[in-house]
């Protein structure tokens, strides 16, 4: 069924380069990968042709080489219920951007803001493009794999050295010992 949809998307949207991603394990979800530049046209096609009538979520996954934006559509048609994972890949980690689909699906408004907040992808033409869960002056994008929590926030020190008491320090040392023990143990299991 997804194969048909891939050919439909390719014939309807030129340059979409839709391809089917099938996992090795048949229990897992297949998904459709499209060109990031054509995402608006593909979403428009899905909506117009009534293949999918609602956007459920926009999830982003950071695979270090590229960031994948996963659009999760749902078909709430009683006769033909279903869901679709549509993916677009962004390789630019600094200025990564993709077109918004919030004019087609208003649900995308908040989901895209969350995706920007967590993974730092800019959505072009978004009506209200700012952070949603983190404060406006937060630095960095928490769900990226290379995220390091800031030492300072608004002049406040995170984990101040001087205020830490000796008992806590001792506990942290113990904790590192446990981590070493865990690593040794997990090495043994494998």
């Amino acid at each position: 069924m997804l194969n048909e949809l891939v050919s439909k998307i390719n014939s309807a949207v030129s340059g979409a380069n839709a391809s089917l991603l099938t996992p090795e394990d048949s229990k897992l979800e297949s998904s459709i990968l499209v060109d990031a530049k054509k995402i608006h046209a593909v979403a428009e096609f899905l909506k117009k042709s009534k293949i999918m009538n609602a956007l459920q979520a926009i999830s982003g996954v950071d695979y270090v080489e590229f960031i994948e934006v996963v659009y999760i559509f749902g078909n709430f048609d009683i006769a033909n219920p279903g869901q679709l994972l549509l993916k677009a890949r962004i390789t630019d980690r600094v200025n990564g951007n993709i077109d918004t689909i919030s004019d087609l699906f208003p649900a995308a408004d908040y989901q895209e803001r969350e995706c920007f907040d967590m993974l730092g992808i800019t959505f072009n033409n978004h009506p209200d493009h700012r952070r949603i869960l983190c404060p406006d002056d937060w630095e960095g994008f928490p769900l990226r794999k290379d995220y390091v929590a800031a030492k300072n926030y608004n002049g406040m020190e995170v984990f101040p050295e001087g205020k830490m008491n000796m008992a806590d320090r001792e506990f942290i040392v113990r904790q590192e010992m446990i981590k070493k023990a865990q690593e040794a143990q997990s090495g043994k299991v494998q």
Partner: peptide, 16 residues
Amino acid sequence: CTQCAMACPVDCIYIS
């Protein structure tokens, strides 16, 4: 055996 410390999701058990 430190199994409890490994299972703990918030790392609040300290054993040595």
